[in-house]
Amino acid sequence: MQRVNMIMAESPGLITICLLGYLLSAECTVFLDHENANKILNRPKRYNSGKLEEFVQGNLERECMEEKCSFEEAREVFENTERTTEFWKQYVDGDQCESNPCLNGGSCKDDINSYECWCPFGFEGKNCELDVTCNIKNGRCEQFCKNSADNKVVCSCTEGYRLAENQKSCEPAVPFPCGRVSVSQTSKLTRAETVFPDVDYVNSTEAETILDNITQSTQSFNDFTRVVGGEDAKPGQFPWQVVLNGKVDAFCGGSIVNEKWIVTAAHCVETGVKITVVAGEHNIEETEHTEQKRNVIRIIPHHNYNAAINKYNHDIALLELDEPLVLNSYVTPICIADKEYTNIFLKFGSGYVSGWGRVFHKGRSALVLQYLRVPLVDRATCLRSTKFTIYNNMFCAGFHEGGRDSCQGDSGGPHVTEVEGTSFLTGIISWGEECAMKGKYGIYTKVSRYVNWIKEKTKLT
């Protein structure tokens, strides 16, 4: 034993070699072989497995989906700052455009905790909710729209109204504003409101030439003092309507412009014939205590009207009353817009006519005020429907199939267009061939041609 100890002390290297040989010859039971080890760690190889990531292109799944990435790591994937920024906006807080917040056709661009709407022409605001041009839906104005110097929408209202708090709607500024039905039992019968379409306001006024200088022999019209197929109006439903009495009662109609003036057809009036105007009328054979009678003290036909040349060209006249009318729910003026808007309103496509005229061709006159909704007829169809001249200051309205029309005794009465609950004068009943005849239409004086003249002559002093 002493000898062994001496050998170990003198030859430590020998001992180490012996131990190493023993270990190498022993069977290893701690580690699995290569094949079995792979069965336990069965993990798919990654895209760049075996390579240094710093030297390969980034992978979106590896960089940002398996674990949260930084902007720089995302930049490695896209290799483009702009594309990385677009991805980053949604990656950080989701897609803010998912709810489609942009209105009126706006395009949404996502941002971090926010979004941006790219608005089409005519709109602005956070969600493109603000109209900035009158060309689109009248700028959301209830009545009139004008573009300011910086191309912003400025709404306005006709006389007797003021802008509401929203700067879009119009509200009454006087007790009985024009064009409004205020009798409670008839307010439910107000005709369907007309909503502004998209309009090209630059070209809204037709490029028409008034044929002022045409000389033409007097034409022989049949029954051209021209509501057939209409309905009984309720008291106060058309408070701007008046009836004219002269040699015979209810020979023509008219509309209240203001307390002192009536507008009617020029062919209705004769110099030297006494005319009485009755406002607030409903049943011409009954006294309903809503009527107001006034005498006409002055007749002003349009300066281009000449019955000797043509009885229905420039067929418009103004009547001055001896005493002002007292405005109330049964006696209310009709609204008159400017030339541009009167023309736009007419193009809405349908209007209402009213009167006490004959209820059928050569038949009896109506006792109760009649009204009828009539569609506008395109000019080409209008011209083809008659052998008589249709001037540019006239328009056609009615039904091709016949059966409904204005008729004798309705002449001078109103053709009105309702705009968001307020009625505007767009025409004056003038003439036609018979009444409600198939293929024939009622012919009306186009008020847009005469609004400046009306307003100039009827100013209240």
Rank of each mutant, 00 (worst) to 15 (best):
Q2K: 08
N5K: 13
A9G: 13
E10N: 13
I15Q: 06
Y22F: 14
L24Y: 11
A26W: 02
H34Q: 09
K39I: 10
I40S: 02
S49D: 15
L52K: 05
E53P: 00
E54C: 00
G58W: 00
E61N: 04
R62F: 00
R62H: 03
E66N: 06
E66V: 05
E67G: 00
E76R: 02
F78Y: 09
T81K: 11
E82P: 05
R83C: 06
T85A: 12
F87L: 02
W88A: 03
K89L: 08
V92P: 07
D93A: 09
D95C: 05
Q96D: 14
E98G: 09
N100E: 12
N104V: 03
K109D: 07
S114L: 11
E116N: 14
E116P: 03
N138E: 05
E142H: 08
E142F: 05
S148N: 13
A149S: 13
N151Y: 12
V153G: 08
C155I: 01
E165S: 13
E171F: 09
V181D: 06
T194G: 14
D198V: 12
D200N: 09
Y201K: 11
A207H: 11
L211K: 10
N213D: 07
N213H: 07
Q219F: 09
D223P: 13
T225Q: 14
V227P: 11
K234W: 15
P235D: 04
F238S: 04
F238Q: 04
W240P: 00
V248T: 14
D249A: 09
D249Y: 05
F251C: 05
F251K: 08
G253Y: 06
N258F: 02
V263A: 04
A265S: 09
A265I: 00
C268S: 01
V269W: 04
E270Q: 14
K274Y: 06
I275T: 05
T276V: 09
N283T: 11
E286H: 10
E286Y: 09
T290V: 06
A307R: 11
A308D: 12
N313M: 10
H314R: 02
I316Q: 00
T332D: 01
P333A: 06
E340K: 06
T342E: 04
N343D: 15
I344D: 11
I344H: 15
L346S: 04
F348E: 14
V353N: 02
G355I: 05
R358H: 14
K362H: 11
S365C: 04
K387R: 12
G402K: 15
R404E: 05
Q408A: 07
P414Q: 15
T417E: 00
V419G: 01
G421F: 04
T426E: 01
I428S: 01
S430P: 04
S430Y: 03
E433K: 07
C435I: 03
M437K: 11
K440S: 11
K455L: 07
L460M: 15
